[in-house]
Amino acid sequence: MNTRLRQAPRSRAAATLLLGVLALGTLYPLFWLFLNSFKLNDELFEQSWKFPEAWQWGNYPKAWQYGLGHFMANSVLVTTVSVVVIVLLSALAAYVLTTQRFRGRGVLHAVILGGLIVPPEVSLFPLFKIMKTLGVLDTYFAMILPDVAYGLPFTVLLLRAYMMVIPLEMAEAARIDGAGLLRCFWSVYLPLCRPALAAAALVQGMRVWNEFVFALTFVGRDALRPLTVGLTTFGDSLQTDWPVLLAGLVISTLPVLATFLAMQRQFMGGLTAGALK
């Protein structure tokens, strides 16, 4: 590391200053959010960078009462189901593509990877029609099904990259012992892939938790809304009480932030293994 560059103390100071200013600029809006969620509405309209005159802890229970708990429960449900299904289906597909030889493998692999370049934004109206035909509009499935489908290509890519490193003999040995394809997948490959599965689950969990467009378009009932869309209705009804709205934003940020800070290594590892936004 140190051999890479021998800096003069001055350039060291300059670099530290630059990084410090950028980090401050990046984090300050979040700090501002936190600070102002403890204020009275009037305080916000003056110099909003000041500390609150009296910390209004009451903003938080008030925000919660707008139904945040309910939105959050919906987010947990949709995220959990989607992530489990994405990871299992992708792992199975990656396993088959990595270990089995069969006619059409190349084509099917290309069909799956091709999904990487299909942006859901392009397909919202057709998807709306498909959901309607399937009779799942305004149900949890209207979020779970597309959340799952659009998470598959990336996850297959990620898990396949990991499985390629596992020696093929592992699969062959298990097959010779009489284990079927599913058995071999379940009891040999899945346990070996645990770190990759965890990384994939984290990346997809974040993605689904933050998903906004499907929930906005395919679900109209407040009772089913996840946090991301729930917050917008919450924002509409709180146009006049910003600190409470800000408290709601803090509450919704905490789960993702805590998860990320606790597992940043696995999370960043999962992202960089496949590199896609």
Binding site: L89, V96, L108, I112, V118, P126, A149, L152
Partner: peptide, 18 residues
């Protein structure tokens, strides 16, 4: 058979909309 769930989901929700 093992690939069919993934392929079916992609067909219905990614490729059919296009």
């Amino acid at each position: 058979v093992a690939l069919s769930p993934v392929l079916a989901l992609l067909a219905i929700f990614l490729y059919l909309p296009l």
